[in-house]
Amino acid sequence: MHLALRHSPTRWVSSNDSGEPAGGTSAVLEYETAETIEARCAKDADRLECLMQAVEYREAGYQRVGGWIESSRNQIQTAFGRRLADAALQVSPLAWRDR
């Protein structure tokens, strides 16, 4: 198999003889372009993780995490992701320990 570099709209990627992205590169491209619902959900999961981490820092007393929380929340694309983000912002990150 021959691998070659080609330029995509966003960067150089390796491709095989057929011009298709090589190996796991296609999954990365799918994630980065967010053209599928699966890719949008994966991106939302990453953003939710960042948001929840910022909320945990805020709960621990760190200041100046508001921008981090806001930018993470604003980048969430799916309705379900936004519902999860809203819930994360309303409930203490340690509430699960009290159940």
Rank of each mutant, 00 (worst) to 15 (best):
R82A: 15
A39F: 14
I69S: 10
Q77L: 09
Q53K: 10
A34P: 12
A85L: 14
E20I: 04
E56Q: 00
G24Y: 08
A42H: 09
T78S: 14
E35Q: 15
V65K: 03
K43P: 07
A39H: 15
N74G: 10
G24E: 02
M52I: 02
I37R: 11
V91F: 12
C50Q: 05
R58S: 02
E32C: 10
A54F: 00
L29E: 11
S92W: 09
A34D: 08
Q75G: 14
W68L: 10
R64D: 00
Y31H: 10
E70F: 13
G67N: 08
I76D: 08
E30V: 05
A39V: 14
T36N: 05
A54C: 01
G81P: 02
I69K: 11
S71C: 05
T33F: 05
I69H: 10
C50Y: 09
R73K: 14
A85V: 13
T36P: 04
E38H: 04
G61A: 04
D86S: 10
W68K: 01
G67F: 06
D86I: 10
S71F: 08
A22T: 03
L89V: 14
L51Q: 02
T78Y: 08
A34F: 13
Q63T: 04
A85T: 09
A45T: 02
R83C: 14
R73N: 02
L51Y: 10
R82K: 15
A42D: 14
L84A: 13
A87L: 09
Y62W: 07
S26W: 03
D86N: 14
G19H: 03
S72Y: 11
L48R: 12
Y31C: 03
E70K: 15
Y57H: 07
E32G: 06
T36C: 04
A42R: 09
N74M: 10
S26N: 01
A60Y: 09
L51P: 02
L94Y: 08
